[in-house]
């Protein structure tokens, strides 16, 4: 365990923990757009920057992204100093130039006193904030079907060659993790379309409702040791079966005890 000071309060943290986790545990609101609990920190949005110093640093201060900075003994952290707030405002100003119509950005910018960007907005704005959560989630799922392509100002999230991604199984992890709902998909009947790729959904034997894609089910059966007939029924039916089983066990044990 190490102990450090955050906004004047002394706190203890596990060694190897990142600052942002400790800050959030204290209930302090530090914005972070590229942070997602399912994946490793990234350090792209720079909004979680905080000011750090130590008594032994002779007044020298450093600005670091708290999502990536490991806790250190005797660290003194300030999450909302004037300089940090100014920096966040500056970054949100840049975000507003790129994503002027995105509600998440608008709300966050309003928290820091900005309603519109002071820069020239880019010609064709969209809702992608390039946080890379989708691609990192896709990597973590084991597919790497989409990635960041191009660099600099032309960077975007895309499947290979902008074609329907061959490695995509239609699991929707990217769309569900996307903080701005930029990634869209469509489920019509037992058909799913995402990234311009069409999938057929399996149908529950009991309810007739569509479940997950055949490709995703095959992958899970093959790689995650899930029984082959598991995807025959949908989640709700699984829960019902389980509840039924648990109920029977309980009834049985009650009768046993009574004896």
């Amino acid at each position: 365990m190490v102990s450090l000071t955050i906004n004047g309060k002394v706190v203890r943290a596990e060694e190897g923990e990142y600052l942002l986790a400790v800050i959030r545990r204290m209930g302090i609101d530090v914005p972070a757009l590229c942070q997602h609990e399912a994946v490793e920190p990234y350090g792209g949005c720079r909004l979680c920057m905080v000011e750090i110093t130590k008594d032994s640093w002779d007044g020298w201060k450093k600005y670091v992204t708290s999502c990536l900075y490991p806790v250190e003994q005797d660290l003194i952290v300030t999450t909302h100093s004037d300089k940090v707030n100014d920096l966040r405002r500056g970054i949100l100003d840049l975000f507003l130039a790129r994503n002027p119509e995105t509600p998440l950005i608008q709300k966050l910018a309003a928290d820091y006193g900005l309603t519109r960007t002071s820069y020239e907005a880019i010609p064709e704005p969209n809702d992608c904030i390039l946080c890379s959560i989708c691609t990192r989630v896709c990597d973590a799922m084991g597919f790497s079907a989409i990635s960041m392509v191009n660099r600099g100002h032309g960077k975007e999230v895309a499947p290979p060659l902008h074609q329907a991604p061959p490695d995509c199984v239609g699991c929707l992890a990217c769309a569900q993790a996307c903080p701005t709902n930029y990634i869209t998909y469509e489920d019509v009947g037992n058909r799913r379309t995402i990234w311009n790729k069409q999938f057929e959904l399996l149908v529950c034997d009991k309810t007739g409702r569509p479940t997950i894609t055949k490709e995703f089910a095959d992958y899970l059966i093959k790689n995650r040791e899930i029984p082959e007939d598991y995807f025959r029924i949908d989640d709700a039916s699984h829960r019902e079966e389980l509840a039924d089983k648990m109920g029977r066990i309980t009834r049985w044990s009650v009768t046993e005890e009574a004896k």
């Binding site: 949005c45 840049l94 790129r98 390039l130 191009n150 660099r151 600099g152 100002h153």
Partner: peptide, 21 residues
């Protein structure tokens, strides 16, 4: 620098672009 920025972090990607503009 605008065309060589990797685009991972916003100050470099958007900031240098706006400076250039």
């Amino acid at each position: 620098l605008v065309s060589e920025s990797c685009g991972k972090c916003i100050p470099c990607r958007e900031g240098l672009y706006q400076l250039y503009k």
